[in-house]
């Protein structure tokens, strides 16, 4: 299993939840991957790319061929597509392992421009998932039913998390995330990493840690199309913007979204 990789140009996206009842990212995602290919970036899908827990299989089947066809093109152009397993797609691991255009992995230790970067989904550090995995799975499934019938519940849930997990002044963590997530990032940074990139929580942002290193969360495309762009070890949190009615797309620098 490949966990140690070297890439000078890589973009990291997470939590697309393809098949989810509330959002279709096919159009913007295909534009994004096309642009990444044109600019010579490899692409890492950092967990929960597909959603089998809350999915409509009909919807998932409608979106998969086009999106993953592009990952095949990525490989044909000599670039690489990495798929880090998350908690919503772990059931599909056997299926994904057979898709030879994707490099399937539990996490990645990336070397870029001499910097060491950890890329991981981070569900293992979520106290709710780690402490009560069966209950977590059940509640997530039930939430899928709620979202199917009342899509507005997602925005309410996101706002609830932001209010519930509100870091104190100077506390190095992202708003909306349990403290355990940034603590896990610090624990990994102590092992000689410069950056830790997580997904899972859907709250995009960057935090500089007191000792050294940075923690970045790529957020979720259910909220907005944010991603991490890595060029020779330089890491930026960006937002994908479509220009000209989706005809012309560009990977632009968005203002860095900071924690808190």
């Amino acid at each position: 299993m490949i966990i140690d990789i070297a890439e000078e140009k890589l973009v990291v996206i997470s939590d697309l939840h393809i098949g989810n009842p509330i959002y279709s990212c096919k159009r913007v995602l295909t534009s994004f991957i096309q642009q990444a290919m044109d600019e010579g970036f490899s692409v890492c899908l950092n967990g929960d790319g597909l959603d089998v827990v809350q999915s409509s299989f009909q919807k998932m089947a409608g979106e998969i061929p086009e999106v993953f066809g592009q990952f095949r093109q990525l490989r044909d152009r000599g670039l690489r597509g990495y798929y880090v397993i998350g908690n919503h797609d772990i059931i599909l691991e056997h299926l994904l392992a057979d898709w030879d255009f994707l490099i399937l992995t539990p996490f990645l230790n990336l070397t870029s421009g001499g910097y060491r970067i950890r890329i991981e989904h981070s569900h293992l550090y979520d106290p709710a998932f780690a402490g009560h995995p069966h209950l977590y799975h059940l509640l997530t499934k039930m939430a899928g039913w709620v979202l199917d019938n009342w899509p507005g519940a997602f925005a309410l849930w996101t706002e609830f998390e932001r209010r519930r997990f509100n870091p104190g002044a100077g506390e190095p963590r992202l708003r909306g995330e349990p403290a355990a997530i940034s603590q896990a990032a610090r624990e990994i940074l102590r092992r000689g990493f410069d950056w830790v990139i997580f997904g899972h929580t859907h709250h995009a942002g960057v935090v500089s840690m007191p000792e050294s290193g940075h923690y970045l969360n790529t957020g979720s495309w259910l909220v907005r199309p944010t991603f991490a762009r890595i060029v020779s070890g330089k890491v930026d949190l960006c937002e994908f913007q479509q220009i000209g009615g989706g005809k012309y797309c560009t990977i632009t620098d968005a203002p860095v979204i900071t924690g808190g």
Binding site: M1, P106, E120, E187, I188, R190, R191
Partner: peptide, 25 residues
């Protein structure tokens, strides 16, 4: 260097389980 003793090793594995994976690999 980060120094790890036997008690701290188990704690490290609990807090940072991917370290166990890397070690095994």
């Amino acid at each position: 260097l980060l120094v790890i003793q036997c008690g701290g090793f188990l704690q490290k594995l609990r807090r940072d389980p991917t370290f166990a994976f890397e070690m095994l690999q």
